[in-house]
């Protein structure tokens, strides 16, 4: 194991050339003692990944995903309703429903997917000795309820406003997020991010016109998220 470990790491991390990898595979196929060592190496790596996954699960236990809000609009209930309507209204209603969904559903799914694929929570930068440090830690840990409580009666700096807006976005409170984002002044270093998140928030709640305005404005003032912004605009216009 000792001397083989570097080779194992290289093979495991996919850092061998194809010739080296083939040669090592042949060794594994023919030398049982090396194969046993590699299997043990791999089992420990996998076990360590699973253990870390458990840590992530514990970390997530604190986070509120807003399950209650979602439960009221559950697809099961919606589907049951649709089925009932179809039964009662017959074929004409079914045709009407199909036409309705064909027209609206693609846009709705597209906006949600675009948001989900592009939304990344703003990560607060730690500064030693800063009065915001504790808040930043709670925020970066994803405990948004506790974070928002801590921000009550605190003077809002642009960074704090950005964090508050992102906390609201994570809590699915996009109107609050938009209100907070608009407070960030345009002379702040967070100006570009402000328009990016304004675009995304509006996209998420279906305000396409506003989303387009924010994304277009962002393109006109900065290169921040240029490719992503262009891709979103092009998808919205499809």
């Amino acid at each position: 194991m000792k001397n083989d470990e570097k080779t194992f790491e290289k093979y495991f991390a996919g850092n061998m050339s194809s010739t080296e990898a083939k040669a090592f595979s042949a060794i594994l196929a023919n030398d049982k003692s090396i194969k046993d060592e590699y299997d043990y190496f791999l089992a420990v790596k996998k076990g360590a990944h699973l253990l870390e996954r458990d840590q992530l699960r514990s970390k997530l236990a604190k986070i509120d995903v807003r399950n209650e809000a979602v439960a009221d609009e559950s697809p099961r209930k919606t589907n049951r309703s649709i089925i009932t309507i179809i039964k009662w209204a017959g074929g004409i209603a079914a045709i009407f429903l199909i036409a309705f969904f064909a027209f609206y559903a693609p846009n709705q799914i597209n906006s949600e997917d675009l948001f989900a694929q592009n939304f990344e929570t703003y990560v607060a930068q730690a500064e030693r000795g800063s009065s915001l440090d504790e808040m930043k830690e709670v925020y970066n840990d994803g405990d948004y309820n506790a974070f928002l409580k801590m921000t009550e009666n605190v003077d809002e700096t642009p960074e704090l406003q950005m964090m508050i807006a992102n906390a609201y976005m994570n809590k699915n409170q996009f109107v609050e997020a938009i209100k907070t984002l608009t407070k960030i002044t345009d002379d702040s270093v967070l100006r570009d991010k402000k328009y990016w998140y304004l675009g995304l928030s509006n996209l998420k709640i279906g305000n396409r016109k506003e989303a387009i305005q924010h994304f277009n404005y962002l393109l006109s003032i900065s290169n921040y998220k240029k490719t992503e912004t262009e891709e979103i605009l092009s998808s919205i216009h499809k």
Binding site: V70, P75, E112, F119
Partner: peptide, 15 residues
């Protein structure tokens, strides 16, 4: 931390 919001989208889609 930066992709936590995805949970809600998928959750609401798939119940």
């Amino acid at each position: 931390n930066s992709h936590i919001g995805m949970m809600q989208t998928v959750q609401s889609k798939l119940h």
